[in-house]
Design a protein around this nucleic acid. Structure first.
Length: 173
DNA sequence: TCAGTGATTAGG
DNA sequence: CTAATCACTGAG
């Protein structure tokens, strides 16, 4: 199936987060390409969203979120886990979608560990890269929306925004 | 329920 | 320079 192009990522993060589940993430390691269906996502809006890293301004870490949609924002958290995020929207408008789960590997830390994704993928362009991209599948799964995980520090109203999307029949952690 | 683990950040 | 925090996971 065709690779998702730039226009797809130029929408806002919530829209992209709703459309990604059901699509396939393709990651090359060596000469083999692994294919994984995206099952769970979360949207982070830069504009005021206190749960979004970029809401505190532009720092070395959040710099990739200011790139044009379609780039990757990878960061390290809790001393052991890489987080995989897809940047959305136009350049200088920091927002992104956290990939929280793919087929067989639920959990944002497991996704990166099992797919071999680390800081070397930071700033990678999903529309141009020869080692990671996203493909359409034609599958539109039924989703369950709910509040985002692990962002209690953001406070209201951000902590309650239903910006987490999971395919209905997947286990809700 | 809770420790592990280290980059990142704000502040002195 | 220091110390707090953290978009988590796995063992118990």
């Amino acid at each position: 199936m065709p690779r998702v192009d730039r226009t797809f990522f130029m929408e806002d993060a919530v829209t992209v987060a709703r459309r990604l589940p059901g699509m396939e993430m393709v990651v090359k390691s060596g000469d083999r390409a692994g294919r994984y269906m995206i099952t769970e996502t979360e949207a982070y809006l830069g504009d005021g969203d206190r749960a979004c890293h970029a809401s505190k301004g532009r720092t070395a870490r959040t710099e990739p979120m200011f790139l044009e949609g379609g780039h990757l924002y990878i960061y390290f958290v809790y001393g052991m886990h890489w987080m995989l995020n897809v940047v959305t929207g136009p350049a200088d408008h920091p927002e992104a979608v956290l990939i929280r789960g793919v087929s067989h590997f639920p959990g944002p830390g497991r996704v990166t560990r099992c797919l071999g994704i680390d800081s070397s993928f930071n700033r990678e362009d999903l529309t141009l890269s020869d080692r990671i991209w996203i493909e359409e599948t034609g599958f539109s799964p039924e989703l369950v929306a709910g509040p985002r995980v692990g962002i209690a520090y953001a406070g209201e109203p951000w902590v309650s925004k239903p910006w987490r999307f999971v395919i209905r029949n997947e286990k809700e952690k």
